[in-house]
């Protein structure tokens, strides 16, 4: 019996490893696409701006995917998804790092970094989201989870704040046509709304407690 159990665990590990690679490569896809665009000069006459927008958008999309993990796990019982949430979150941070770097190296100017952050509220809001994200990324290793204990959970709840800041940043920098930010804001609203719903109306019914992971 013990042997069989080990064998099953072994299979489970293999599946997990394959999934890990699947997520890892999927997360790299936008980056590869961007590299391809850069190499084939497909970004037009203002590549810096295009790269910055691309990275910002993919950071937001990845962040929303990360926020969808808990609801998907609860609604569809995709427990395996939870195992890869750390990587999804780190990819959101990865694209945010590229977004900030390209914004200040390729579009603006490093020399006016501070002035711009202070003077432009939409950049300030984006910067706040980025600093929080960096905090979450730094505290993402298992050792940090153990060390911070209960505080870790509380700290990582700030992903909700990051989501809101990111969408506000998007709205604020948009001029005239709000179709795109409205689209992403609606997704965020659903993802946060479903949590509130569970918290206040379904608390007693939620027997598994799985949703309380976050």
């Amino acid at each position: 019996m013990l042997y069989k159990g080990n064998l099953m665990a072994g299979n489970g590990d293999t599946v997990k490893l394959i999934r890990w690679w699947g997520f890892f490569l999927a997360g790299l896809l936008p980056f590869c696409f961007l590299l391809f665009q850069i190499l084939t000069r497909g970004l037009g006459p203002d590549p810096g701006e295009a790269i910055t927008r691309f990275n910002g958008l993919w950071s937001l999309i990845t962040l929303l995917v990360c926020l969808a993990v808990t609801p998907l796990n609860r609604l569809l019982k995709w427990r395996w998804l939870v195992q890869h949430r750390r990587m999804i979150g780190l990819y959101a941070w990865f694209y945010a790092v590229l977004h900030v770097l390209s914004g200040f190296l390729l579009v603006l100017d490093v020399s006016i970094f501070l002035e711009e952050v202070v003077k432009r509220p939409y950049i300030a809001v984006g910067m706040m989201a980025f600093i929080l994200m960096t905090l979450l990324a730094v505290t993402s290793p298992k050792a940090m989870v153990r060390r911070l204990g209960k505080k870790w959970k509380l700290l990582h709840k700030s992903i909700y704040v990051i989501g809101v800041l990111a969408v506000v940043h998007y709205f604020w920098l948009t001029r005239a046509d709000y179709t795109q930010p409205v689209f992403y804001a609606s997704i965020l609203l659903v993802l946060l709304g479903i949590r509130l719903y569970w918290r206040y109306y379904k608390k007693r019914l939620g027997s598994e407690g799985a949703y309380r992971l976050y």
């Binding site: 850069i38 203002d46 711009e116």
Partner: peptide, 21 residues
């Protein structure tokens, strides 16, 4: 006179290269 969203002191003359507008 700055625009509230960005400085108007300088500009990016297009087309810009990748590493250095």
């Amino acid at each position: 006179v700055d625009h509230p969203r960005w400085s108007q002191k300088s500009e990016r003359r297009l087309p810009g290269g990748l590493f250095g507008p």
